[in-house]
Design a protein around this nucleic acid. Structure first.
Length: 770
RNA sequence: UGGGGCGUCGUCAAGUGGUAAGACACCAGGUUUUGAUCCUGGCAUUCGCAGGUUCGAAUCCUGCCGCCCCAACCA
């Protein structure tokens, strides 16, 4: 679009999901003059969460990758819950994710005047009326899912009266709820949303952007399509629960004054994101904050964008996660592990490795004199991260190691420290534990160790091996710090499924410890959003709110994956593959009514198989095709099969009694099929043309070149060539990979230009492949 | 219950009549001064179930089963 050069469209890879298919085909068909405009339309009444991130990424990337754009629009049509605070936080969150709406920032409220005019126009054309029923009356007169609603007694008010009332509504002459504006829909519609949907309601409440200008506000179903159309949106993407609203969306677009609309957008729905062990609903998130279960909307345990940001997750990780999750229409719940994995993948190449002991146990190096400092060079990066850089780490007499890295009685396969054992201190020396000092309560207070000066850097001169490598920090030179280790917010995968969701809260979703960090890391913590990997512990960064130079506070962003856990604490793995119940009860096929049964029997008498006959009588337009074709000489079985299995699909949206072809033409096609002149595939190709244009089946066969080749002598060399050209697959097939059969059939059919008789081809293949 | 959707590996998800992609998880080996990373290999004879059509069906037809959404003056 010429007026919007703001979004670089080249950098974004094209997605491959179903919405991308729709956009691509719209562009190919030249709809919207090839333009693609999407929008992200949050209501400013809460903070954005990771579910919104999916919607944001989807809409922005879809727009950008097809050379279009994506708008940010605030759907602020309900003044009672909305505020500027949310407008600001949402903008910040979208920007943080890396998206830019350029000049295309909109507010539904900026369109209020236009919407009002459009509503007036609807009233003038008799398509909307002012209803003065109470809310309760409106509800009860709407009917139920199985019963039609009843018309409002006010439905037939004159245009003049409607106009007058609506203007008075706007003027503030009425109390909340006194009147509403409704569209004249269909009170008997199966889709409840179409039963005279509400367009406007009275709300004597000031609006966060419009002030006291309005006291009537448009409803979502009226406002949303208009916002889209007024902005020039082409593809309006939302979540599955709006599927039922699509009909009104279209109604509004179709019935409103067309000259005011920039585009005629269409709505498409995708499945919202769900993740295990957390909640995503605004209501539940608000409760967590308001009841103090978390410290705020940006608490690092929250699935909010603000929470993730404060936790230290980078937007790149979120975007990668959304990409991995995919996009479809099936309700689903993503494994929480996928998010963690995405965060680790991102940080693995971003975070320099440093050492921090999160739960210190004192170690005294007996043979290193007090005051002596061995400075050791330590790389910031492991061998497989292509980055360079290192720092000096002090090794002194008093050290700290992780309390859980020592076991007085080591379990099997223990690769850490234990009495008498030797381990390597990373980048440092080998040490051996010689003495364990306990306090009066029996708790281990200190380990007395010796170090081997000849192992400086971590390699022994004599080639002796050590059972493991531990991270450590000099207690003399290290810096104390607070560590906040976050775990899953909830202890069950589906919070609230069996009880109040608050009872499912994980009591250990935050563990605070006091540790010690090496000096080099301490001095760069908090600088330029510095993230670290604390070796063998996880990824951390300084909390942006609570950490300071004098009092370091680190958030654990995500732990490292570990294939080791203490046997006693080993978390029970997910219940292993409880394979689904293979059998399920099969339902009964409903009985045919006596009339239909008689009709079916008559068709059976004509030669139709029983199952086909029952289907043929199920729709009035179906049976004539069968009887007509049989009357024209078609074999009953072929005719019924064609009508039942193929005709309707080939007809598409065209009613069967409006097709241009005739039962006689169908009969001719049956004859070709029966005579083996064409394959079933060729028959379908002909049928597709027949329903569109009609004509002679045999003429079409000649025209389309579909006449079947059935002579084995002609086909054999072609099949032989296919096998010769695919020797590797032949070997694999003979080696037992029988699935390749389909590959050969496909190849053989292609080799014959689609004309080879599949039956003969199959026989040849059987013979030649053995 | 009427209507609208959706069922493909433990979890997501491609595939629309011709070899059941890929990712995460998992398992087994290898590298490793992080029990991490990385590398290699394995991981759906079968697509909710049952019939039918077809040389050939996850894909077409019929029926059934299961889950989600809709009866706010919320969005």
């Amino acid at each position: 679009m010429s007026d919007s050069p703001s979004l670089p469209s080249t950098a974004v890879a094209k997605p491959t999901h179903f919405l991308a298919d729709i956009v691509a085909s719209d562009q190919a068909a030249g709809r919207y003059e090839g333009q693609v405009v999407t929008r992200f339309p949050p209501e400013p009444n809460g903070y954005l969460h990771i579910g919104h991130a999916k919607a944001i990424c989807t809409s922005f990337i879809l727009g950008q990758s097809f050379g279009g754009r994506c708008h940010l629009r605030f759907d602020d049509t309900n003044p009672e819950t909305e505020s500027d605070e949310f407008v600001r936080s949402i903008q910040g969150d979208v920007r943080w994710l890396g998206f830019d709406w350029g000049e295309h920032l909109y507010f539904a409220s900026d369109f209020f005047e236009t919407m009002f005019e459009l509503a007036i126009d609807l009233i003038e054309r008799g398509l909307a009326y002012v209803d003065s029923q109470s809310g309760e009356e409106i509800r009860s007169n709407r009917g139920t899912v199985t019963q039609a609603g009843t018309h409002s007694p006010f439905r037939d008010r004159s245009v003049a009266e409607n106009l007058e009332l609506f203007h008075k509504m706007r003027a503030g002459d009425f109390a909340n709820g006194a009147h509403v504006l409704r569209a004249k829909g269909d009170m008997a519609a199966a889709n409840m949303k179409l039963r005279d949907p509400l367009l406007y309601r009275i709300r004597n409440t000031p609006h966060h952007r419009q002030g006291a200008k309005w006291c009537i506000y448009p409803m979502y179903d009226f406002a949303h399509p208009l916002e889209d159309a007024l902005e020039g949106v082409t593809h309006s993407i939302c979540t599955l629960e709006f599927e039922n609203n699509r009909d009104i969306y279209d109604w509004v677009i179709d019935n409103v004054d067309q000259s005011r609309l920039k585009t005629q957008p269409k709505q498409y729905e995708f499945a919202r994101l769900n993740i295990g062990y957390t909640v995503m609903s605004k209501r539940m998130l608000r409760q967590l904050v308001e009841k103090g279960h978390v410290a705020g909307w940006d608490d690092p345990r929250m699935p909010t964008i603000a929470g993730m940001r404060r936790r230290g997750i980078r937007p790149q990780a979120v975007r990668h996660f959304v990409e991995r999750v995919g996009l479809a229409k099936a309700n689903s719940q993503v494994d929480a592990e996928l998010l963690d994995g995405s965060i680790r993948d991102d940080l693995n190449f971003e975070a320099p490795r440093v050492m921090c002991v999160t739960d210190p146990l004192s170690v005294e190096i007996r043979n290193l004199p007090e005051g002596q400092v061995e400075w050791l060079d330590a790389s910031y990066w492991p061998h497989d991260v292509p980055k360079t850089g290192s720092r000096q780490v002090p090794f002194t007499r008093n050290l700290a190691i992780e309390r859980e890295d020592f076991a007085e009685v080591p379990p099997k396969k223990w690769r850490r420290l234990s009495p008498g054992a030797e381990v390597r201190l990373r980048y440092g020396f080998f040490i051996r534990c010689e003495e364990v000092i306990k306090g009066p309560d029996g708790k281990i207070e200190k380990l007395i160790c010796s170090y081997d000066p000849k192992t400086r850097g971590g390699d022994s001169a004599d080639g002796r091996k050590v059972q493991g490598t531990l991270h450590w920090v000099s207690a003399d030179k290290g810096v104390p710090c607070e560590l906040r280790v976050y775990d899953r917010l909830f202890r069950v995968e589906n919070p609230g499924a069996d009880r109040d969701f608050l009872e499912d809260l994980n009591p250990e979703n935050l563990r605070v410890t006091h540790g010690i960090i090496e000096p080099a890391a301490a001095s760069s913590a908090g600088l330029e959003e510095q993230r670290f990997q604390f070796e063998r512990q996880g990824y951390y960064w300084a909390d942006p709110v609570d950490s300071s130079k004098d009092a370091l506070v680190f958030n654990r962003i995500v732990g490292l994956k570990s294939s080791w856990s203490k046997p006693a604490l080993k978390t029970p793995a997910k219940p292993k593959a409880q394979s689904k119940p293979k059998k399920q009860k099969v339902g009964k096929r409903p009985e045919l009514s006596p009339e239909l049964a008689a009709a079916a029997a008559a068709l059976q008498a004509l030669g139709a198989p029983k199952a086909d006959a029952e289907i043929l009588v199920s729709e009035a337009t179906l049976a004539p095709w069968f009887t007509g074709a049989v009357a024209a000489g078609a074999t009953p079985k072929t005719a019924s099969s064609l009508v039942v299995n193929e005709l309707r699909r080939a007809a598409g949206d065209t009613p069967l009694d409006a097709l241009v072809c005739t039962p006689e033409q169908l009969a001719e096609l049956c004859g070709l099929l029966d005579a083996g002149k064409i394959s079933s595939k060729g028959g379908k190709a002909i049928l597709a043309v027949l329903v569109e244009k009609g004509g002679s089946a045999s003429a079409l066969m000649a025209e389309l070149g579909l006449e079947q080749i059935s002579d084995p002598a002609v086909l054999r060399p072609m099949v032989e060539k296919v096998l010769a050209d695919n020797q590797a697959n032949v070997d694999a097939y003979r080696g037992g990979q029988k699935g390749l059969r389909g590959f050969f059939v496909g190849q053989a059919i292609r080799a014959t230009g689609g004309k080879g008789d599949p039956k003969v081809l199959q026989a040849l293949l059987t013979e030649l492949l053995g």
